[in-house]
Amino acid sequence: MKKSIIIIAACVLYQLTASAQDANALIKRVKAKLDKVNDYVAEGSMKTDVVFIKAPAGKIKVYYKRPDKFKIKRDRGISILPKGGISFNNSSLLSTSNFTAILAGESIIDGTKVKLVKMLPGDENSDVVLTTLFIDEANLLIRKTNTTTRENGTFEMEMKYGKYAEFGLPDKVIFAFNTKNYKIPKGVTMEFDTDEPAKTMKNKKGKVEINYSSYTINKGVANSEFN
């Protein structure tokens, strides 16, 4: 009896270690692909879909520099971007090596088989609690991520790839996040009309969609762009 328990425990431990090794190896391969990009400047358009924001789609410029500098600038005008440490890029997610990765099964996204990798941060004070990566192993592309944070709720990021797939850079990113309630007293905004139907906005998901039209890769980006 004692012998069989030891054997089972050893099997489970082996399985877990093997899973962690597989996950780490996969992440290393993805990271190696992403590391081909030292910096980039991308142009594209951004759409914000939040129930209490009426904003027009606008042109944006995105700046990235390794390891984790990332900035989205609206081409003229005010930019309203969801809060949180998670930026809209994969490199930032993998910029640290202080995490434990575990393989958590397989799934299918848009007809592509993906492996689920759960990443647990090693730093106890990290805002990120858990990140799940949906990795297309054949092409070494991250198709989707799901990140839970302490302060800013849960984020979901979906990526579609096209002509910049060889660098692991997406053509389209859909970023979904939880929004808090928005309300200003009518007395402050001086609105006296009562016939506007009240909108239910609590616990609604917000969405930001970025469509990249072009990337300029590894041509250098000044640090001043990130200020």
């Binding site: 129930v51 209490f52 924001i53 009426k54 904003a55 027009p56 606008g58 005008g77 005010i78 309203i80 928005y182 309300k183 200003i184 007293p185 009518k186 402050v188 905004t189 609105e191 506007e196 009240a198 909108k199 906005m201």
Partner: peptide, 9 residues
């Protein structure tokens, strides 16, 4: 506005 924000270019 009281219930939402309008961004005008």
């Amino acid at each position: 506005k009281s219930g939402y924000v309008v961004q005008l270019k």
